[in-house]
Design a protein around this nucleic acid. Structure first.
Lengths: 193, 193
DNA sequence: TTCATTTCTTAACTTAAGTGAATAAGTCGT
DNA sequence: ACGACTTATTCACTTAAGTTAAGAAATGAA
């Protein structure tokens, strides 16, 4: 299981056995079951998450409706904005499936940095890469219709459509569940001709 | 003029005179006039931009139509995703107004880092902060209607509505220029009763 | 100032998303 | 297997965005 973490890290920097042990000695692996809420709206937290296996999502509750805005699956990391801004969280984080993840914070990061500074370099590379990736996603979202977004998702992350309830996918695509259902109908209609 | 840059940096780290000089010795200040294209689709580049005064925008050309997705004004930084991914750029960067900015790349950054390592810490903080900020923006975009987005922009960045042509604001809001014009009419209509 | 070009508005029409409500299908725990 | 609850579909209706096209307003250059 730890392999997933080290495979991920090795994309950025190479690790000696000592360094691996340094990480294992501080890092906390957690297994959480489906439906567990890791973070609630209004809570303060310093924790970042890294998904080793499973799936978590972030959602807001607006006008008594859940608005899901992101999913994190294998090898994906989430640092909630409230960790950076030191304000109460505006969203919830919950587990869609039984999930294995690491939970870490700035103190732990500092502890690892103290033992090998290249860890900080990795963190910088990682957040630059995430920033660029998210920028592309945002641009794609802005420049395409709900239908194009759905087809794009089908192409890029087909697994999500299998493992996630449709009403959660709907807000992720910026529309209502009824519209997604209709839109899907329209597409299969087309494909039959 | 350099003050804008140092004011910005001082939000993250404090600088000695020597350190300021180290930055000035490598950094390149450029003044570019309205309409100048800093980056074209298909080009390779290693350059990041930091706006000291003025405004630049990023836009795609899709189906022969410009799709503007972001604006950068005073104290805002842009590292195009293609710099990170080392692929040709998917978008254009151009100046909306006469603009003063710094243009820097990883080599220059390394040169500064060599002289004072806390610069890297600042870069990490900066990209983490930008990531969090962009995440909030994306979530707001997903969970609101075009009209709410426009009203939100009016509230948060009223300057943009003044300095940017409306057809560029439209795609930034995820709609067509005609729809933005109509939407604005609807709003002023409401406000008169 | 004048002309050309760019940007914005308006209108009629088409298409799709939002809304409210009812029903169907699927899931979970006992 | 049963009922309770959650999730997905469907329908009729409303609202707003996309499309096409024409014309008005603003901008810029000669």
């Amino acid at each position: 299981m730890h392999d997933v973490l080290f495979d991920f890290i090795s994309k950025y920097i190479s690790l000696t056995e000592d360094e691996k042990n340094a990480i294992l000695s501080v890092d906390i692996f957690r297994t959480v079951k489906k439906g567990t809420i890791l973070l609630k709206e209004g809570q303060y937290t310093k924790d970042s998450y890294f998904v080793l296996k499973g799936c978590i999502r972030t959602y807001y509750v607006l006008d008594n409706e859940e608005k899901t805005t992101a999913f994190y699956t294998e090898m994906e990391a989430l640092t909630p904005p409230c960790v950076i801004s030191k304000t109460p969280s505006e969203f919830y984080v919950s587990c869609i499936e039984e999930t294995i993840l690491t939970v870490s914070n700035a103190d732990m990061e500092a502890e690892i940095n103290a033992q090998f500074p290249k860890f900080e370099t990795m963190c910088k590379m990682l957040s630059e890469e995430l920033l660029a990736k998210q920028r592309i996603d945002f641009d794609e979202f802005k420049t395409s219709s709900p239908e194009q977004r759905y087809l794009n998702l089908l192409d890029k992350r087909p697994d999500l459509i299998q493992r996630v309830p449709q009403y959660q996918l709907a807000s992720y695509l910026g529309i209502k569940p009824e519209s997604l259902s209709r839109l899907r109908g329209r597409i299969t209609e087309k494909n039959r001709g």
